[in-house]
Design a binder for these strands. Sequence first.
RNA 1: GCGCAGUUAGCUCAGCGGUAGAGCAAUCGCCUUACACGCGAUGGGUCACAGGUUCGAAUCCUGUACUGCGCACCA
Length: 876
Amino acid sequence: MEKNASPTKPQENTGLPAGYTPAAAESAWCEKWEQQKLHHYDPSRPRAETFVVDTPPPTVSGALHIGHVFSYTQTDIFVRFQRMLGKNIFYPMGWDDNGLPTERRVQNLFGVRCEPAVPYKEGYKSSGPKKDLKDYEHISRRNFLELCEAQTAEDEKRYEALWRRLGLSIDWRQTYSTVGEHCRKTSQLSFLDLFKKGFVYSAETPTLWDTTFRTAVAQAECEDREANGFFHDIKFQVQGGGDFIIATTRPELLAACIAVVAHPDDARYKHLFGKTALTPLFKVRVPIMPSEHADPEKGTGIMMVCTFGDIADVEFWRKHKMPMRQLISRDGRLNALTYVQEFLDSADLETAKNNYAQLAGLYAKQARNKTVELLRTEGSLVGEPRPTKQAVKYYEKGDQPLEFVPARQWYIRILENKPALLEQGKKVAWHPDYMYKRYEQWVEGLNQDWCISRQRYFGVPFPVWYPVDHEGNVEYANPIVAGAERLPVDPQTDCPPGYTEEQRGKAGGFVGDHDVMDTWATSSLTPMINSRWADDKTRHAALYPADLRPQAHEIIRTWAFYTITKSWMHENSVPWHNAGISGWVVSPDKGKMSKSKGNTITPEGLLQTYSADALRYWAGKAKLGHDTIYDESVFKVGMRLANKLFNASKFTMLQLKSPAAAGAKLGPADITEPLDRAWVEHLKGIVEASRKDFENYDYAAVLLYVETAFWDFCDNYLELVKNRAYSGKPEAARSACAALDWTLSVFLRLFAPFMPFITEEVWSWSYAASTGRPSVHKAPWPSAAEMPSAAGDKLVLESARKMMEAIRTKKAAEKRSVKWPVARLAVECGPRQAAALKLALEDVLLAGCVDKAGVTLKEAASDETPLTATVELGAA
RNA sequence: GCGCAGUUAGCUCAGCGGUAGAGCAAUCGCCUUACACGCGAUGGGUCACAGGUUCGAAUCCUGUACUGCGCACCA
């Protein structure tokens, strides 16, 4: 026979009323809340009563995963608490749908590439995904953008459905999409404002470049990846005699060498400073110079500077105003053969040409191998390459190393404003507080201004044109910016003031800026997008700065930092008063859950299996900032808790036929029995703590002890008093019912932020009517002041609990059922406890099936004497 | 190299000066006028290590070792 199988009841009995299934009930509540406008923001109420959330707009690129459920639920839990405090909640939702993730998704889904030169096709339809890259259809920019918009609109519908199903208490009238008109307008207005204030500039300078996506990227979007590289020892000749050996991991950059440097104090190389070296293969004359950034301990102590291997090369090149020998082109290949003649100062042009001819057009990695081969042939390679571990910079979404490539880009001035930005960061309350450290460390470590232009398509264009002079040169130094009243504009289709469309791209005419903004340039404005900074001054004043920014820790360097930056630059303000930083969901092997590992979990199935309340319970158990291991057994625990809430409520309200449930008003005055008063006293403590902890963003602590208190309530207090509640003694029963009535209303409210569905369901049975609050989610957060009755003595509860424990232990040891009679019960304890116990004795005897005649109570002299109980069971 | 967080029962975690806790898992039982998706009981721990402060340290301080993350360097 199956374990736990019941001989009298069918196994499939769920304990829930017929027809009640969590999934159906939860969906029904979603609709009801929407009809009741429960989550609507009320603009007529004052700012002081309002709580504003700067919700993260999820990237719209396919599907939401369990990590989203986790962090968005945590925010919702806190928001629901605020709502129960009586706050007017502004809780919007945005969709981050512009940028590369969408472009990539659309490319793959439809088998297309954006090719701006291709003309627009009316009513274009894709023929679906393509297996081979060469089969991809090249379509116009407008067709491409149309596909992007259609695709994201569809994804957003699915996202919204999931959020509703999860019970996020969002005001669905407050939404935005980062590529929508309002965000384009806000982003462009932001650009104009920064332009006017001098915070933004354009410059043609070496910039971090992804050769696959062929766009500039910002420092914040880079990550280091460890790679196995090789040190190559290469011999350089010194003009006028002598040689030395440099060690490099990037020999393919040899043709881009502009100098050789060693530390100024390095005795080995001091005598070479001021002389000229000849590079191998190309015989290029390069100066040998002292430089502090050369480390005598590393490699051979002398190194080559190239345009450009890393940021140090860029800085050296800039500082010494060196020539530019840009070797790597925008697609990641080495320049054409003409490079040798145009850029290299070679002492042996023929040799240089012959060698370079074998490298021109190769990708950097191929060129590396070829260069090594050539060096070996020439005899300039000393020994064999030595393996080494190195960290290589990648664009976080890319799979080829980044290069530094000179290109004209727009930048926001970060470096000179670091001190102010650090100060702004300090004005925000971070939860947990140590997350400020990450912000600080990031700001301090920045070494480049924020590059905001991207050479992509699906994004917000710059509201900028450039005049073209009579020789056809574009005058980048004299940008024409759009007037604020025209925004949003698309410089590719709109005309700058004073020009006509015929003059586009012509000498004496104009060109439109062809770039789009970094996604973060828009999402850094979310508090201002929500407040309608761009077009509604009144609303902006009411909603800005926000109260809470919830977000994950890995985007402190981007989203949090950029938002703080823009708020300071535009409004000289912090964007929000609090930053709640959520942790991650990690896989059971403690790795990050990721699509590439195939261990991401889709939430829809889990919602069906476990219910939204169960998933929310899991999210609510995790503290802010703490990572959580994905563990389905916690969903089961949550499901059980919801079930228990349901059953305990059903029992109390329907089966005990509490007078309260029948409509009678029960209040503190009805709670007369000492045991009931002791319980109420105990519960008051929990209620008080919950408010304090919640206000400190420690919702997880609240859930922990409220849950414990609830199970304790069910297993001990409820078990103790249910017999009395059934009993014929009206006053004693009334006392129990009054205590139970308040207790349940407290638990339902305490659990409501975590498990909004089951609590609302139960609340609707009678509390909605008895309290005049149709929804538990707008009922007041419980407070001890609701029960002003005289303090109960908790020792009464404690003593009763100990007695029950002794009786249960005995019955378990004897393998007897709970209702097996107790023939004799001998208790010994101090006088104070004895007095307390007497007050609850009747309930204990009833619950424990104890024969009243067999009870003896011995009072010890001292209150120090602990309570001991000797139990003897009777015959059947 | 610098910084932040962590190390408590088999697992996941709470506790943050006053007798080591919970859930899950394990084991043994129990149909009990809410719930067998339930209930009761049992076993299980040098609180990473070493010093110090204290009447008293898992808790405070110092150091060490691991783990995770962030930043920097990357010839």
